[in-house]
Amino acid sequence: MKQKILKRLLFIILFLIAVAICFPVFFLIVGSLMGADELNAYLGPVLGKADGFAGWALLPTYPTFKAYIQLLLDSPEFFVMFWNSIKLSGMILLLQLITGVPAAWGFAKLKVPFKNVLFNLYIILMLMPFQVTMLSNYLTLNKIHLMNTPWAVILPAAFSTFPVFIMYHFFRNIPQGIIESARLDGAGSLQVFFYIGIPLGSSGIVSAIVLSFLDAWNLIEQPLTFFKDKTLWPLSLYLPSISLENAGLAFVASVVTLIPSLLVFLAGQDYLEQGITASAVKE
């Protein structure tokens, strides 16, 4: 009996923590549906228009899509940034797959000279923060005159070793027997890769895509360093530049930025968990 009560209590605590953790999503959506007057009333003190402290309501009193329409019609710069974010993330993912999938397959299943040394190098590089690689990236980008072009962010990210590491673990779990029997039937390396490796390792590929997308959509250090021209900026750098005066716009822009990433998360959640788990397999 006592244990049952304890368990229930534990559940309630964990549930409340979960609600608190997810609260920002709810908060942003509610804010984006409030009219300008309502927002001004709640946030007046923060904007310096009223005394006291900012307040909030659980739900908007008069929900409206006005702010969304305003964003659609009156903020061309938002669309430029949104498109920039899509382009950067899309190109990064595409190039990561083109170079990363074969590399992960090679590390997992093929004979490669100095394989262990190289793979350990990949792990170490994966763990190096941007402060370490920033100057290296810059030296190359500057030499080939790609600074201040979208490629300055795309190319270094495309060769991130993290997705290779994730996919490697999935490829390694493919039983050797299947590959050998295919070989006996006369399949070449490319055929084995395309007809066995990719289909059987597809969950690893999706995991890598989900993890990479969440990161690419969030890039801040790289565009900040490698783009001088603000028209190249992704959303992540644009949002904080909206002043609180435009709170309505800031809320809507935050929600619109959140949507792609939340959709990928919801659609790929199982893969995300598998990917995270794969990184825990000790070498």
């Binding site: 997810c22 920002p24 402290f53 969440l214 959140l258």
Partner: peptide, 25 residues
């Protein structure tokens, strides 16, 4: 639910941080 923050871009949540920790926030 605990994984959701991973999917929230930093830029989106910054608005909340600003309102939360403002002098009159």
């Amino acid at each position: 639910a605990y994984l959701v923050p991973m999917a929230i871009p930093v830029a989106s949540v910054v608005l909340m941080w600003r309102l939360l920790f403002h002098e009159h926030g």
